[in-house]
Write a protein that binds this DNA or RNA. Structure first.
Lengths: 121, 121
DNA sequence: TTATCACTTAGAGTCTAGTCTAAGTCAATA
DNA sequence: TATTGACTTAGACTAGACTCTAAGTGATAA
């Protein structure tokens, strides 16, 4: 699969894909005889995971750490698990914060709708 | 209330408070005879709202637009409501995305825990 | 054969949201 | 009186995550 197809599939840019490769999040991607990237199914699975975690706000730094541990092999399994658990906690906290903000936003919109607005902002 | 007290109350830095004022998100804050900021209750309410919305990821640009509309008066009420509704949609979408990522993360952690890991990353 | 087009690289530039620095003012304490 | 400490300003700097540019290669279409 070419970089263009992958970019389209995951709705990201070629630049981002090459950037992720450069910082070591994915790949190195196999290249054909003319030096053109050819993404494998394995690559796609990694990209999907990375994309998903990025969309949740997990930093490239943390993901890079996870990938590096993975590449170190079996012996890092527990450390990897702990890393993921930490990110789980952070993510749950973030979702909670955002849900609270959403509730306030909804309340504010309700005030606008019922014309009961006698507030500051 | 001094800038230091406000910063402590909302767990942010003096710099951020001055930055928000500079870009027009809050204030201008009243100053005493020596040029020192003295935050009013009104100011605090605004800051709390801004802080809450920022923690949900609403951009400074959007918040600035909302504040500007507010300052234009009654005639912008509907536009303000629409702006908030748009942000509500975006926020709901973001929470959904993050919740999906969280589920994947939990699943992955479960695989680690049960030692059933035969995966890519 | 020449031109076009999609790809390649290294590295510079951009955007957002702060964060930090330097130089200065003022009030209160040693 | 001198110095300490909290504040002030304008403006430079930073981090994170891309995004763009310039220069080059190789396969294919005209």
């Amino acid at each position: 699969m070419t970089i263009k197809e992958v970019a389209e599939k995951f709705n990201m840019t070629n630049d981002t894909l090459r950037y992720y490769e450069k910082v070591g999040l994915i790949g190195p991607i196999k290249k054909n005889s003319s030096g053109i990237r050819d993404y494998s199914e394995e690559d796609l699975k990694r990209i999907e995971f990375i994309k998903c975690m990025r969309s949740a706000g997990i930093s490239i730094e943390v993901l890079k750490k996870y990938v590096d541990l993975y590449d170190e092999g079996e012996s890092t399994k527990l450390e990897r698990q702990h890393l993921l658990e930490e990110e789980q906690d952070k993510l749950e906290e973030k979702i909670k914060t955002m849900t609270e903000a959403l509730d306030k936003l909804k309340y504010k919109i309700e005030l606008y709708k019922t014309d009961k607005l006698d507030e500051y902002l």
